[in-house]
Amino acid sequence: MTIEGRYLRNKKTLTDEDQQKLAKSCVAIVGCGGLGGYIAEELARIGVGRLVLIDGDRLEVSNLNRQIMATELNIGQWKVEAARDRLRSVNSEVKVESIKEWFKEEKGPEMFREVDLVFDALDSPATRVELERVCHRLKLPLVFASIAGWFGQIGVSLPGDFSVLRLFGHGERGVESTWGNPAFTPAVLASLSVAEGVKLLAGRMPALRRAWLQVDLLTMEFERFEINNT
């Protein structure tokens, strides 16, 4: 449904030209849980034309504390289908493709065939590194974010950067396995990711290339660190 005035409040943060660029863009969100759900919601609301949602998981009760796509009525549903259903009622102008599979390196070229930008909303450090590798090979910009308890990290990796490898190259699991993920952390980190992603789609410079923002919601400190390719 085309609704006159839908994007009125995007002005003048986004120009008409920016808005048209978003409408013509196709964005992949890898992982449709806490982070991915909010990322998809915001991209649909702001007016990105096509979304490719990738997640091989179904909704469960423990997702209700933080995942915007989870409700008491859709437990057991595929996460990507629950997201598609919700997004249809938020912005039916957005084309949503739901892929009920886990991301794997060898599937990347097929999954990202018409994609302009990728969001890493995964929960496995090893798969994050694989995703960055695929994005570099396909010359796709990547916005990555991760969460654990009160804390999060977010940055941008453009082809040739190895930000994700630097940050996630060691260890199998993060401290989220003991600290969990409360409602507010994915919402904050997803919003920061979308802000960077929208700049990339509009052809502007992202702020967090070769860097990451360390977010601490306990002390409310946001600190930027550089990632040196040496």
Partner: peptide
Amino acid sequence: ICLVNGRDVKEQHVLNDGDTIALFPPVGGG
């Protein structure tokens, strides 16, 4: 990740007087 004076180093890195060491645990959830 471990930064010494803002640069990414390994745990065998030898420190100097006045260095600043920053240590980060893995934050990997989504």
